[in-house]
Design a protein around this nucleic acid. Structure first.
Length: 598
RNA sequence: GGUCACGUAGCUCAGUUGGAUAGAGCAACGGCCUUCUAAGCCGUCGGUCGCAGGUUCGAAUCCUGCCGUGAUCACCA
């Protein structure tokens, strides 16, 4: 809001002083650096040529103009081409007073007329438990959805479960052969883990068989195709596609086990979906779309009967859409789900949170949809994120170096417990309260650790070091919030009443540190808007950290409750309360809970 | 080989979309608990922003070319 006043006034100044048209949105305003006097800085270098004067002189002239026209402006100074402007204390007090009275500071009201944003994330396979890679996906998707909502969009969270295909059949076959009718509850195992083990077992047995075949003289490729287990699995897939009753029944039973396990993991992670799509329900629609595209002459058929899209005019290759045997591929299914999603929600935007190894896939998806005349192709955005790497290298399931999602969360909980207990902070907590706290801290550490990194970058996850509580971490921010809450309740005990600031408040001065915090608080709504635009919770996370760091310095330096000057004391209590509010809102957008005490 | 990302302190990461003397944390070292929670604060040490050109008042940021890392280029999903 202050920005806007300033940019408008600068544009007016350029017109009045130099008769030059400058667009308001081109006026560069930034927060004044700590080393200099001032609150906001206007960059006047660009006007040097237009006005044919030295930057310094222009700065002086515009500064004088602003001081004259805007009552909020108290003073200004010019350094090189930077015009630093200070605002009156009254302005800052009014800002703080208003912010304190605003419900949900920073969140925008929902704009009903906008079409919803559909965001897909998670997208698990039903033959494997969730791992660290999924965690980054889930947290990113969830947080982006929250941020979009806070910026005023209606959001639909959607999951696409890959519940069919050869890998599922492998798992079913393995259970049939070696499972002896045992169930997860009998085995006392989480459903997804239970089923995942059979997939692993299949791969193991199949590998042995392939090795055997190779000894008998088959080539590796041939051996892979000729293995009896694979043949059986393919047979099962065919039976599944034909709707064979026994196969379908087994399939449903085993998938139900998996979903029960997934639900637990999602719940602990704190995420949910508005709608879950299953590939088994959407792949046929994809085929229809392709068939229709063929009839309309947009796609073409090769001699073997396979159907393709020619993308050469886009500088790409040809893309297979339906195999010669009539079965569908990954792309076919995604065409179907996109269409279905569009029909379901008529969204303004379709977001896909999917790893960057699929960048090419989504380029192609957009192009093919466009070719097929789907206008919504332009509304598809791929939120691409980088891999999570481990100190020893990539995660590889074959080498047993995957980090299981449930195990990791449990570890985080245990670490939180260990560290908290050593510090002796929970003496007054009941058993349940303590457990709840460990969970909030453990999850906070994990979520913040993942989300603070720019999504598009690959990131390193060191299991030993990830559970940190100092520095740029979730627990550090949680702790700061707990202290603010403690300060607030102490103030109430001493008889100070909220709201701390009344209209009559008159202050002589505030410290530079307090001013710095005010400036940051003021930026919060803009930070939400920006994070929503770039789909990056990382910006938000780093903003909160910076705020907390500055707040901590201020907190340590100025013993609030000992303050003699009541005006000052109330101001500081108000500032603390506001900081707490912003931390709470910001962390909520990252999916992180903040305890009131810890 | 083609395409696309990424490369910032010993390590993990920021850098508000081209602005001021490039910032944090971890690690190392030195201070600060009779005060609202020391999971904290203050300070010291640490940089040729991969390299070389270019664009301009001004480049970690934009352009070009190299070097390095990763992903992808499947009738896998």
């Amino acid at each position: 809001m202050l920005n806007k006043i300033l940019t408008g006034a600068v544009a007016a100044a350029m017109k009045d002083l130099y008769d030059q048209e400058v667009l308001e949105e081109n006026v560069q305003v930034q927060r004044t650096r700590k080393e200099f006097d001032g609150d906001l800085t206007v960059v006047v270098f660009p006007y040097s040529k237009m006005a044919r004067k030295a930057p310094r002189q222009i700065g002086e002239e515009i500064g004088a103009y602003l001081k004259d026209k805007l009552e909020e402006v108290e003073d200004f100074n010019v350094i090189k081409g930077f015009l630093n402007i200070s605002f009156r204390l009254a302005y800052w007090l009014e800002f703080l007073r208003q912010a304190l009275n605003t419900k949900d500071y920073g969140r925008q009201a929902k704009k009903d007329k906008d079409a919803p944003v559909v965001i897909e994330f998670s997208s698990p396979n039903t033959n494997k438990p969730l791992h660290l890679g999924h965690i980054r996906n889930n947290l990113l998707g969830w947080s982006v959805a929250e941020i979009l909502e806070a910026s005023g969009r209606e959001v639909k969270r959607v999951n696409l479960v890959n519940d069919r295909g050869i890998h599922i059949c492998k798992t079913m076959l393995a259970w049939q052969k070696w499972g002896n009718g045992i169930t997860p509850s009998k085995a006392e195992k989480k459903g997804d883990k239970f089923v995942g083990d059979y997939y692993v077992q299949f791969e193991k047995q199949n590998k042995l068989e392939v090795k055997q075949k190779m000894l008998e003289g088959y080539s590796e490729e041939e051996a892979g195709r000729q293995s009896d287990l694979m043949k059986e699995a393919r047979g099962m897939l065919k039976k599944w596609e034909l709707g064979d009753e026994d196969t379908r029944e087994l399939w449903e039973k085993m998938n139900a086990w998996v979903y029960k396990g997934f639900d637990k993991t999602y719940k602990r992670m704190g995420i949910r979906f508005d709608k879950i799509y299953f590939e088994s329900e959407t792949y046929l629609l994809g085929k229809e779309i392709v068939t229709q595209g063929l009839q309309e002459g947009i796609l073409f058929k090769k001699d073997d009967g396979s159907i393709w899209a020619d993308l050469s005019d886009e500088g790409l290759d040809e893309k297979l859409l339906i195999r010669a045997d009539g079965t569908s591929v990954y792309m076919t299914q995604d065409l179907g789900t996109a269409q279905l999603r569009y029909d379901n929600f008529k969204p303004g935007k379709l977001l896909y949170v999917v790893g960057n190894e699929q960048n090419y896939h989504f380029d192609v998806l957009k192009i093919v949809l466009k070719k097929l005349g789907k206008a919504y192709a332009d509304d598809i955005f791929h939120i691409s994120y980088g891999m999570v790497e481990l100190p020893h290298g990539k995660m590889k399931s074959r080498e047993g170096t995957v980090v299981d999602a449930d195990d990791l969360m449990e570890e985080m909980h245990a670490s939180a417990k260990a560290i908290t207990s050593v510090l002796g902070k929970i003496d007054e907590f009941s058993q349940e309260e303590a457990e709840e706290l460990f969970e909030k801290i453990g999850m906070g550490a994990l979520k913040y650790f993942i989300l603070k990194v720019d999504p598009k970058k690959n990131m390193l996850f060191n299991p030993d070091e990830s559970i940190q509580f100092d520095g740029n971490t979730g627990p550090f921010i949680q702790y700061a919030h707990a202290r603010i809450q403690s300060l607030q309740s102490k103030a109430l005990e001493k008889g100070y009443k909220k709201p701390y600031l009344t209209k009559k408040s008159v202050l002589q001065d505030i410290l530079p540190r307090e001013r710095q915090i005010l400036k940051q608080l003021q930026e919060f709504p803009e930070i939400i808007r920006q994070s929503a635009e770039t789909y990056s919770p990382a910006q938000l996370a780093n903003y909160i950290y910076e705020l907390v760091k500055d707040y901590n310095g201020f907190y340590q330096d100025t013993p609030v409750l000992k303050e003699e000057d009541e005006q000052k004391l109330l101001f500081r209590l108000g500032l603390s309360e506001m900081t707490g509010k912003v931390i709470r809102t910001g962390m909520a957008l990252l999916g992180i809970e903040v305890p009131d005490r810890m």
